[in-house]
């Protein structure tokens, strides 16, 4: 019984950190589906979101929920401007130029955050810090449960947004076929910037949900590398796949930390990623797509 409870707890912890990977991967996939760019700076946008939330909640002393909302808005605005000012100019350059561009941006974000805030680790109080919830004898940290619930709510909201609103449908159209979307009168460029805004906002949500579990510092963006495993596992073109892939990566990581000798936990996500790329490159949920000549 004790062992089973321990395992279940590991699974929940893993699923919680997996949700964070999933939310970052969500950002990758959203941008990739729409613009065929891969944003290697997604993890660092999450880091910026965390610092913005830290400013609102800890430094300005705002209510947690107000600070949460403002952090999402500010980060989303940042994502919008990032696309409108920088990324839009490199459309048409080879895909890898964009990868290098976002890697360069990530360096700048890290230095900028260090300059604007601090290079030390910081944190802020949330309603979920250091509280537990008792589910039928299973004691779980509220922080982990809040991540799971928050991810579910966010996914639901975004699902409704993409399927029910005009803007969401326009976004789907723009990512399926840019040219046709233009002909239908969809302002594709603004839509793309809005997509960047949404994925930056999702990154901010991930950051605030992560806050009770982990400290905020300029290097937290390296979580983005683990999120690649999530995105690839989900097929790199499938939004639900990214979140589910994230959960799988998180759970596998926790379990390997428990069952395998120390040291393996750090590379689990990388091994999962390579294994998926070699054995099933289209991912668990992706479709095989042939390259156009």
């Amino acid at each position: 019984m004790d062992d089973a409870a321990r395992l279940l707890q590991l699974v929940v912890n893993g699923a919680a950190s997996g949700c964070i990977y999933g939310l970052i991967a969500f950002g990758f996939v959203l941008i990739y589906k729409a613009t065929e760019m891969v944003n290697f700076a997604q993890g660092d946008i999450m880091m910026l979101g965390a610092f913005v939330a830290y400013s609102f909640i800890h430094q300005f002393g705002l209510n947690y929920w107000v600070g949460f909302g403002l952090a999402i808005l500010v980060t989303a605005l940042f994502g919008f401007l990032l696309d409108a000012i920088v990324l839009r100019r490199v459309i048409g350059q080879p895909q890898f130029a964009v990868v290098m561009l976002t890697l360069g941006l990530a360096f700048i974000f890290r230095a900028g955050a260090g300059l604007a805030w601090t290079y030390d680790s910081v944190g802020f109080n949330t309603p979920f810090t250091n509280k537990t919830v008792n589910l039928g004898g299973l004691v779980l940290g509220q922080d982990n449960v809040s991540i799971l619930v928050g991810t579910l709510v966010l996914c639901g909201v975004l699902y409704l947004f993409f399927s029910r609103t005009r803007l969401g449908v326009a976004m789907q159209a723009a990512s399926q076929n840019q040219l046709a979307a233009y002909y239908m009168g969809i302002p594709v460029r603004r839509i793309f910037s809005l997509i960047w805004a949404i994925s930056a906002g999702v990154a901010a949500v991930a950051a605030v949900l992560l806050a009770p579990v982990s400290m905020i510092d300029v290097n937290m963006g390296f979580l983005g590398i683990k999120a690649f495993a999530a995105a690839v596992l989900g097929g790199f073109g499938s939004i639900p796949g990214a979140v589910i892939g994230g959960v799988i990566v998180g759970v596998v990581e926790q379990l390997s930390g428990y069952f395998l000798p120390p040291g393996f936990q750090d590379v689990t996500s990388n091994i999962v990623l390579l294994a998926v790329l070699i054995l099933r490159p289209e991912g668990l949920f992706g479709k095989t797509i042939r390259k156009r000549v």
Binding site: V86, V90, G104, F107, I108, R110
Partner: peptide, 22 residues
């Protein structure tokens, strides 16, 4: 005295290079 001066200048030059001199 900024600790991240060097990587940020690397990043900046990389970004400018890709945008203006591929």
């Amino acid at each position: 005295r900024m600790p991240g001066l060097e990587p940020s200048i690397f990043g900046l030059i990389l970004v400018l290079c890709i945008m203006y001199e591929p």
